[in-house]
């Protein structure tokens, strides 16, 4: 198939990626041969039941985990050939992560949690600016314990975008939040995707969220079950779940 030259550049590409957890007694295939492409500036939603392999794939894409077999590229870089040191470098320079449980450092304020990233990234935006983007300009000096769940997750987003990452990988960013707070978080992600063109992958259990994505990938038993494209994307505030 000839590539359409108007299509955006491929950011992530995988070929036959498997991930096997060997517990000694049984072998669990978390990923059983995944081929996929994520393109520049796209917002992709990954759907699927628990254990279908979404998080494992996201971890491998983000350089947090190694594939058992298969190959993974980030643009021209082949991640599956990199050692831990190079993967650390890769994460530091290109990837922003957002997790379900925020994972803020309790002993650091919002601003300082973001500074964790700006301290080591090559071309970061000021921590204050990142917090403004997620609408937390007025809560910068609060500690995680002094913030609501939605606010904490937005700090996590600010932390992820502060390094101006090329990709944003979000593992159930709204999983621990009610839908109203969840919308605020999705709005922040949507805005970053639109304004900065950051390639974004979002894992979620909430199927309605797919409506804000360019591309929706469904996972089942460690494989991609289906891929679909949205002609029109909804704004997060139009989504209810």
């Amino acid at each position: 198939m000839a590539r359409d030259i108007t299509e955006p550049e491929v950011v992530f590409r995988t070929e036959g990626v498997t991930k096997v957890y060997d517990t000694g007694e049984v072998k669990v295939y978390a990923l059983a041969g995944v081929d996929l492409e994520l393109r520049e500036s796209e917002l992709t939603v990954l759907l699927g039941a628990s254990g279908s392999g979404k998080s494992t794939l996201l971890n491998i894409l983000g350089g947090l985990d190694h594939a058992t077999s298969g190959r993974v590229w980030f643009k021209q870089l082949e991640l599956t050939k990199m050692n831990d040191r190079a993967l650390t470098r890769f994460r530091r320079d290109y990837v922003g992560f957002i997790f379900q449980f925020y994972n803020l450092v309790a002993s650091l304020s919002a601003r300082e949690n973001v500074a964790l990233v700006t301290d080591i990234a090559p071309d970061p935006m000021p921590a204050e600016e990142a917090l403004e983007i997620v609408g937390l300009g007025h809560r910068m000096d609060h500690f995680p314990a002094e913030m609501s769940g939605g606010e904490q997750q937005r700090v996590a987003i600010a932390r992820a975008i502060a390094k101006r990452p090329q990709v944003l990988l979000c593992d159930e960013p709204t999983g621990a939040l009610d839908s109203k707070t969840g919308v605020q978080v999705l709005e922040a992600l949507d805005r970053i995707n639109r304004e900065f063109g950051t390639t974004t992958a979002v894992i979620t259990h909430a199927a309605e969220i797919r409506k804000m994505a360019h591309r929706v990938i469904r996972f089942q038993d460690g494989k991609i079950a289906s891929t679909e494209f949205n002609e029109t994307r909804l704004h997060p505030h139009e989504i209810d779940w």
Partner: peptide
């Protein structure tokens, strides 16, 4: 989990 996070952020071993 904070260690995991720091690593995810790109802090070296």
């Amino acid at each position: 989990s904070e260690i995991g996070l720091l690593k995810a952020l790109g802090y070296s071993d």
